[in-house]
Design a protein around this nucleic acid. Structure first.
Length: 760
DNA sequence: AGGTACTTATAGAGT
DNA sequence: ATAAGTACCT
């Protein structure tokens, strides 16, 4: 019997098919397993897979779950609608595009496109770009859309109006409205529109509401703690008829409030559905007792949470390894050494290790060390493949072919590679487009001698749009691979890169080639699912054409990309992207104040608690061994930063930590200046010199000024001991020295901080 | 119009 | 440190 593989609670949760169900699933409690069996069970009981909608947090999670369900119930699993909110609803929006006055070839603007558009609007409004910071404005618009506040609602709302006036930005509402009409003109939606417009569809078209209520008789939502209001409302409406709504989540792992996720959605589920059944999965199957208990001791510090007790039957395991390093470089080195050691003595594979960090930029020093040690690795975050310049350029060609109205794509490639269409002509074209409320492409197509643009340039522009039009006409005739390759070769991007001497260009060509491979893989991939047996109208969406490729790619994240599971590599990623994953050995590095918790989250308890949940997520990724590390100084944003150890380290109950923690802790206590002297101000720990370990009075003569140092001089350092200056660079506060120490080896020191003394 | 040299903003997680 | 934007010169 299918459900025999589950424990009692899991099984009860999986069997309870009808009505609203809330599953609170602690970290490592077999949530995916339960969901998988729940869906398989539904199908076994005779529910048509067409009637199941399962929403996951990443496309990868969806694909994996689908595979596992196929193993249980066979091929029909592929008819389940499964994917992220954004991908599933963008599919539906494409099917119903005409209701909203859109073509089904609409493109999805990423945040870069959105910011570009906001910037042009701010300029056109003659507003100060510094006051109307594009990221800030987009954040405001995004928050509004996620809460189903339209531009008109925003403008009419007196609270927003006075708020915006008080921060000296009274025109945000107007920008919001213009932004939306320009999106529409470009036949584009931004990420939030995919959810907002889905709500519009369900609100304004009762026939569609009924159609999708009937289609999705069974709805499941994973990671429910990270849904925003807009997502919540779609689910609420779709499930209103059959009320078979099952949500799964863990409030302790809610880490996306910054993106508008509302933890109240999961906390208030029982209020929304008073007849709902609740199941708590509290047994952890993933980690050792030490890890589970240590993580519990951390999360207990948070005030706002659902009470639950995660426990495990697993072995006690090792204590949590703690390492304090002097620099980010040595932190990376220590991690590499530990990996090599475990591989040797523990018979581990590279793919058993993950290195997690708070911010993407931390990957750099790690990469250097890994490469130096010849350890194979893979970065799962950072500048995503699809975010790279050359890939965005190529995709902009694709986008413009698919949707001629796509202004941001147009602007990106109209003169790249350069074809003699300069700023002056482009500005004239922009004015024509604005005056007639048409897209740049339309304006370009109708250019004539009246435009004020030189005849030669007009011809160049016409040539460009004509070439794009030719490809557009081929869209439905040839597949994505064939057309994509044609466009790339015609675009001249490869030629441009080949002529470029910059060594980075060779890498860029490789990336374009990888995109071509992705096109091929897309064309050869199996049909994912037939969309709708009832209407049949969406068959064309399943073709392997370029528009479908572009649609898919624009909603893809780095972690969704194909990877060889057999590839034996160490994984590097942010803690956010590690959500839902597990590894035998986990390193959480950069455990420092201002980095983790991040300096931007220190302002409020709510934000600090989210950071702490993030730490909880990081810890609970580990199955067998967990290591925490920090560095006294770290290269960050172009300069050396000195930070205290993270307060989160003190949140971990010391009985689960290795001895090294106490040794380093006592050294901290011996520093009388480590006490905060904030004069009764908010208890923020600040970056400041007094946080540094004070020099211990060992031999040596302090210098009068930095200029007293010279190459070859013998010096004394509190920590590294005796050494000789190899070379000096910079001057004043920025003066640095490379010093060869007798015991510690070659170090590069910032003299202002190193407190070197002359040898007696 | 296009390229180079300088200036300035941005350094938080990601659909 | 890096990317993007601007000024200025061919």
């Amino acid at each position: 019997m299918l459900l025999d593989d589950l424990n009692v609670e899991q099984r009860l949760a999986a069997e309870c098919n009808e009505g609203p169900v809330l599953i609170i699933a602690g970290a490592g409690s077999g949530k995916t397993r339960t969901l998988t069996y729940r869906i398989a069970h539904l199908i076994e009981k005779g529910v048509d897979p067409f009637n199941i909608l399962a929403l996951t947090f990443t496309n990868k999670a969806a694909n994996e779950m689908k595979e596992r369900i196929s193993e249980l119930v066979g091929d029909k699993a592929r008819y389940i609608w499964m994917g992220t909110f954004h991908s599933v609803f963008s599919k539906i929006l494409r099917i119903e595009a005409d209701r909203l006055g859109y073509l089904n070839t609409f493109t999805v603007y990423d945040s870069e496109d959105s910011k570009g558009l906001i910037r042009s609007i701010v300029k056109e409004f003659n507003l100060d770009e510094k006051v109307y910071n594009k990221s800030f404005i987009l954040g405001r618009i995004s928050m509004s859309k996620s809460n189903l506040i339209s531009a008109q609602d925003y403008i009419d709302n007196p609270t927003f109006a006075s708020e915006d006036r008080s921060i000296n930005k009274p025109y945000i509402g107007q920008i919001y409205r213009e932004y939306n009409s320009r999106l529409r003109r470009a036949m584009a939606m931004d990420f939030d529109d995919l959810l907002f417009n889905m709500n519009v569809l369900l609100r304004d078209y009762p026939d569609l509401l009924l159609k999708y209520q009937e289609k999705f008789k069974y709805i499941l939502v994973d990671e429910y703690q990270d849904t925003n209001y807009s997502q919540y409302y779609i689910i609420k409406k779709l499930s209103a008829r059959y009320r078979n709504i099952c949500v799964v989540g863990d409030d302790a792992q809610s880490i996306y409030a910054f993106r508008g996720a509302n933890i109240r959605n999961i906390l208030d589920f029982q209020k929304d559905y008073p007849d709902s059944k609740i199941f708590k999965l509290e047994q952890n199957y993933r980690s050792t007792k030490n890890i589970v208990n240590a993580a519990n001791s951390v999360i207990e510090r948070n005030i706002g949470k659902i009470e639950k007790k995660v426990w495990t039957d697993n072995d006690l395991g090792k204590k949590i390894n703690y390492k304090e390093c002097d620099s980010d470089k040595n932190e990376a080195k220590w991690i590499c050494n530990t990996i090599v050691d475990r591989k040797l003595n523990d018979d581990a594979k590279y793919k058993d290790f993950a290195i997690l960090y708070r911010t993407n930029q931390q990957s750099r020093s790690l990469e250097e060390s890994l490469r130096f040690m010849n350890i194979p690795y893979r970065i799962f975050s950072g500048v995503s493949f699809y975010g790279r310049k050359e890939i965005k350029d190529v995709l902009s060609y694709f986008r413009l072919v698919v949707n001629n109205f796509d202004d941001e794509a147009f602007l990106r490639i109209i003169n790249f590679p350069s074809r003699g269409i300069g700023e002056t002509s482009l500005n004239k074209l922009k004015i024509i487009a604005a005056e007639n409320s048409i897209s740049l492409f339309e304006a370009a197509m109708t250019l004539d001698s009246q435009s004020g643009i030189s005849t030669r340039t007009v011809q160049l522009i016409i040539d460009f749009v004509t070439a794009i039009r030719v490809f557009t006409l081929e869209l439905s005739k040839i597949d994505a691979f064939e057309l994509g390759v044609k466009i790339i070769s015609k675009s001249g991007i490869i030629k441009f890169l080949k002529n470029d001497e910059d060594p980075i260009s060779a890498e860029r060509i490789e990336n374009v080639e990888e995109l071509i491979n992705a096109l091929q893989a897309f064309v050869e991939s199996e049909e994912d699912a037939i969309l709708d047996e009832l209407t049949g109208e969406e068959i064309s969406l399943n073709n392997k054409t370029l528009d479908v490729f572009v649609q898919q790619v624009s909603l893809m994240s780095e972690s969704d990309r194909d990877d060889d599971k057999d590839d034996d590599r160490v994984s590097l990623m942010t803690i956010h992207s590690a959500k839902g994953l597990e590894f035998p050995y986990v390193f959480v590095c950069g455990m420092e104040e201002n980095l983790f918790p991040n300096v931007l989250s220190l302002g409020s308890r709510v934000e600090l608690e989210e950071e702490r949940r993030l730490f909880y997520v990081a810890m609970t990724r580990a199955k067998k061994e967990l290591a925490l590390s920090c560095a006294q100084m770290r290269f960050r944003n172009g300069q050396m930063a000195f930070n205290e150890k993270s307060r989160f380290l003190d949140d971990v109950d010391p009985k689960y930590l290795s001895d090294e923690f106490f040794n380093s802790k006592s050294s901290k206590k011996s520093n009388p200046f480590a006490q905060e002297t904030n004069f009764g101000l908010s208890p923020k720990r600040k970056l400041s010199k007094i946080d540094l370990p004070l020099p211990k009075p060992i031999g040596g003569v302090p210098v009068e000024s930095m200029e007293d140092f010279s190459e070859g001089m013998e010096v004394c350092h509190d920590k590294f001991g005796l050494g000789k200056i190899v070379c000096l660079e910079g001057k004043g506060d920025d003066m640095k020295a490379e010093v060869m120490f007798e015991s510690a080896g070659l170090k590069k020191l910032v003299l202002r901080f190193a407190k070197l003394k002359l040898k007696k």
